[in-house]
Design a protein around this nucleic acid. Structure first.
Lengths: 154, 154
DNA sequence: AATATTTGGTATTTATAAGTATCAACTTTA
DNA sequence: TAAAGTTGATACTTATAAATACCAAATATT
């Protein structure tokens, strides 16, 4: 078996213009979504952005939400702010007290600074919270999961 | 102590034109919010709508979400669809299986039919799910509440 | 070294959601 | 029973979010 570069859904492959072309939108629109915290791109050392296949899928999902479901960008931000990140990363009571994400509800956790808590040394881009829960169905199912977890202890 | 008509925040008091005037919007806009499921008015036997002080506050909250926070109506619907109603009304596993609200994520529970479950004979207008959880902060705090409830059993 | 691309801005356009106007039929109330 | 208000529906207007176009400076590619 010869040595190969491992490629998967998370491998940074596409430049911003390639990504934009794949989605049929302008480069600026992609950056607009980034500014809004809907997507975190890979940054090369050089400051140029790169996107993986997962990023493309995420962007497609964002487009559907905006164009088909008529949810505004601000609305998507609020929805993502409801992801129960504290439960997913299982942070402590003390972590929560100092966490801006836990104590606010306007943006997803990856939009806040995480100093002095469990997330401090973690990369949001590779965190389950960011990677897995970007749409309504997945977020709702996760909330359901919490209640089921609770009920199973009764 | 003489007999008085009990008035509270939930007493139906205002006609639709009075409510619209109080909010500085048109009658039609109020009905638009109703169509979207953001507000459930009282209906007199006569089919004319009436609004309580709580309804006015709720409408003010909706207005802030739309005008200040820039969340679209479709966005508000999706956010309200994340209210963990099943946990609040504590419905059974069987109730959940047959519940359109539980099994979807596009609208709040009070927008669906509740046949053959615990909600069947309840009035959504006076249900805690509808009355208490119409904004992001309250919804998020409720989700937090579930996790804390779970953690307290450990 | 020359060409192509990306960056982060601002200014502008466009698409459309949110809101208004108007309507005839119906209901309430005075 | 006349006047005022409500209903639901359609057509129209407006406000603005989303997207595009453009820019000069920086970076990457050949």
């Amino acid at each position: 078996m010869r040595s190969e570069i491992i490629q998967n859904q998370d491998t940074p492959l596409y430049s911003i213009s390639t990504a934009a072309k794949m989605l049929g939108i302008s480069v600026h629109t992609v950056r607009m979504y980034e500014r809004a915290g809907l997507i975190l791109p890979f940054q090369k050392e050089s400051s140029h952005r790169l996107y993986s296949q997962s990023d493309i899928e995420r962007l497609k999902c964002i487009r559907r939400a905006i164009n088909e479901d008529k949810i505004s960008i601000a609305g998507i931000q609020r929805i993502q702010a409801l992801i129960p990140c504290w439960e997913i990363v299982n942070c402590s009571q003390q972590d929560r007290e100092h966490c801006d994400a836990f104590n606010n509800h306007a943006y997803a956790c990856w939009m806040y600074n995480h100093k002095k808590n469990i997330c401090e040394n973690l990369d949001c881009k590779s965190c389950q919270v960011y990677k897995e829960f970007y749409d309504c169905a997945k977020i709702k199912n996760r909330i359901i999961g919490i209640t089921e977890k609770y009920e199973s202890t009764l």
